[in-house]
């Protein structure tokens, strides 16, 4: 029955404990120290992770504002001037980003996953949406080797 099982368990527990009072104190102290170490480790890693995510969010919001201002500049240009301005900027050393105007959305082999990527993409979407007053924006990560530029046939590494 449950009662005899409980008594047997208690007996087995008592047998595995140290026989002396001193031994039992030592055991309690060791267990206590290990538990404190574990608790501090858990708190410390979660704080480090939070601060890393906060840093990442600040960094990505800085880049997102910069992207938004570049996009606003190109959007404000009359249609027929966009290519001329792009060529001029490239000759002069270029903007901070690679910019092109295409007839359709280029395919991007999106890479990466996890909370960090989600945070960056979410920050970019939020800032670009509110800064440019649009709702159709795609934010993706690409490997440099598979990055397409100008159209779906030209890879960056071939340029």
């Amino acid at each position: 029955t449950a009662d005899t099982r409980w008594r047997r368990l208690r007996r087995r527990l008592a047998r595995s404990l140290p026989g002396t009072l001193r031994g039992r104190f030592v055991l309690i102290m060791v267990v206590g120290v290990l538990a404190a170490q574990l608790a501090s480790y858990v708190i410390w890693t979660s704080q480090v992770r939070d601060s890393r995510l906060a840093q990442l969010e600040e960094l990505s919001s800085n880049v997102a504002f910069s992207v938004a201002s570049t996009m606003r500049f190109f959007r404000s240009l009359p249609r027929e001037y966009r290519h001329i301005v792009l060529d001029q900027l490239r000759d002069m050393g270029g903007p901070r980003f690679f910019v092109s105007v295409n007839e359709k959305r280029l395919d991007v082999a999106d890479i990466g996953e996890g909370p960090e990527k989600a945070r960056v993409v979410e920050t970019f979407r939020r800032i670009l949406t509110e800064q440019l007053d649009i709702d159709a924006v795609s934010v993706e990560f690409s490997r440099p080797e598979t990055l397409r530029v100008f159209n779906n046939e030209v890879l960056l590494k071939d340029l």
């Binding site: 996009m71 690679f98 795609s138 934010v139």
Partner: peptide, 21 residues
């Protein structure tokens, strides 16, 4: 490092493409 690509439809058949190269 990975490259961030942002694409935005300005008008029909006009996509602004921006990559952090």
């Amino acid at each position: 490092p990975p490259i961030l690509v942002v694409q935005l439809e300005l008008e029909p058949a006009t996509w602004l493409y921006l990559a952090t190269i």
